[in-house]
Amino acid sequence: MEQIITCINCPVGCRMQVVLSDSGEFVSVSGNTCPRGSAYAKQECTLPERMITAVIPVEGSRIPLSVKTSSPVPKDKIPQIMDALSSVSLKAPVRLGDVIISDILNTGSDIVATRNILL
């Protein structure tokens, strides 16, 4: 199985051909020009991960609270995490770094406040 992906590490943007086994295991990569490319290709083709950022309304505040995942989460979990965030309601004060939801959807990652809402 072959997959073609673009490297995101630098502006060169190498087009890389990744060979995967039938069971989806990483076999080899070509087309990259540095080791960062091969590390990215392996991660991206076996377990792609993303940071998620979003906003959550805070009762009584005109400005919503911006949040992030404390670490990258599996890409296929993004829709479920956005769903989970849409039903959260919060009260001020919230401080930058506060954990809003711990271990969201068993990813091992927390939803963390990225600003203060003190009112």
Binding site: M51, T53, A54, V55, S66, K68, L96, T114
Partner: peptide, 17 residues
């Protein structure tokens, strides 16, 4: 609110806020 700020200055990836 997205991340990717501060890699050069703080050596870590921060959100804008």
């Amino acid at each position: 609110i997205h991340n990717g700020f501060g890699l050069h200055r703080f050596k870590e990836e921060l959100t804008g806020p």
